[in-house]
Simulated scan of single mutants.
Amino acid sequence: MKTLIIYTHPNHQSLSYAFLQKVIQGSSENPHIEEIKVLDLYEEQFDPILIFNKEKRRRDMHAEPRLAEYRTQLLWADKIVLVYPIWWGRPPAMLMGYIDQMFASGFAYRDKGGLLPEGLLKGRSVVCISTMKGPALYPLYWLNNAHKVLMRKALFNFVGIKKVKFFEFGNMESPKGKQTAKLDRIYRYFRALQS
């Protein structure tokens, strides 16, 4: 199993970074995971700004030379792991800019003229690990599960990825947030993961 970890947080002293380290540690100790690649969007200085004009058309984005390496990473991966905070009920703008550009028509899906497109990234699975200041049930009760709907239905199912697992950790700025136990849970999950 080849694993691509996409990390989206500007601070390497953050709890999100600690979760990234636990993903790497658990994955490194898992005999089913043969190779790991980490894409740190901030460290990479990924440009999240989407530009369309006369010279740059949306229908050509799947072949944008600047994004070729990132497309290769997504095609290489069997499992895609996203580590990010929840800000204002959704992933950071940096990650959304990556998604806007990478999951393009002609690369991630193909229109067939019907109601739904053909997903071109079938066979992969995704794990989303997110942290938030508010309570863990906040997205469910106050936002109608908008984060999970966005990631699972509007994005991954649309491009053919049906297996999506979520770890949404709330109360992460509280002294009673059980951060150590949650970090250990992620480590154990990736150490034991088989598919």
Rank of each mutant, 00 (worst) to 15 (best):
F52Y: 15
V83Q: 00
I6W: 00
M61N: 14
M1W: 08
G119Y: 05
R71D: 08
S105F: 14
S28V: 10
I49D: 10
S27I: 00
G26W: 00
G26D: 02
Y7W: 05
L115V: 14
G114A: 11
P135R: 13
L95D: 00
D184T: 07
L74Y: 06
L116R: 06
S28E: 08
R66M: 12
F166C: 05
K133S: 15
K153T: 12
L193P: 05
L20P: 01
E55W: 11
M151Q: 04
H12I: 07
M61E: 13
A146I: 09
T8A: 05
Q45D: 14
K165Q: 11
S195G: 15
A18M: 07
L137Q: 12
L4E: 01
I51Q: 12
R188Y: 13
P91Q: 12
L67H: 05
L137D: 15
Y189F: 09
S195C: 14
M96W: 01
L39N: 03
I6C: 00
C128P: 01
I6F: 01
H147W: 05
F156S: 02
M1H: 06
I6T: 00
L140H: 07
S27N: 05
E173Q: 14
F167L: 03
K165S: 14
Y17T: 01
K56C: 08
W88M: 02
Q21F: 01
K165I: 12
L150N: 13
R185S: 10
H32R: 14
S130E: 04
K162E: 13
L74N: 00
A18I: 06
K162G: 09
I33D: 00
G106T: 07
Q13P: 07
I5N: 01
I161M: 06
H32K: 11
C128M: 14
Y138W: 15
P92G: 04
V127E: 02
G106W: 03
R152H: 13
I99G: 02
G123R: 05
I80V: 12
Y138L: 15
G114T: 15
K165F: 03
R71H: 14
R185L: 13
I99R: 04
E69Y: 13
P65Q: 04
D47I: 08
V127L: 02
W76M: 09
N30W: 07
L193C: 09
N157E: 12
K165H: 14
Q194Y: 05
S174I: 10
E43V: 11
P139I: 02
L75I: 07
Q45A: 12
L193I: 11
E69I: 10
T3R: 09
L137S: 09
E43G: 13
N171R: 12
D184R: 13
Y141V: 11
Q21Y: 02
M102S: 03
R110P: 03
S105W: 09
A136F: 10
L15R: 09
L41V: 07
F107I: 08
R191T: 04
I33W: 03
L74P: 00
K178F: 08
R66G: 11
Y84F: 09
L116H: 10
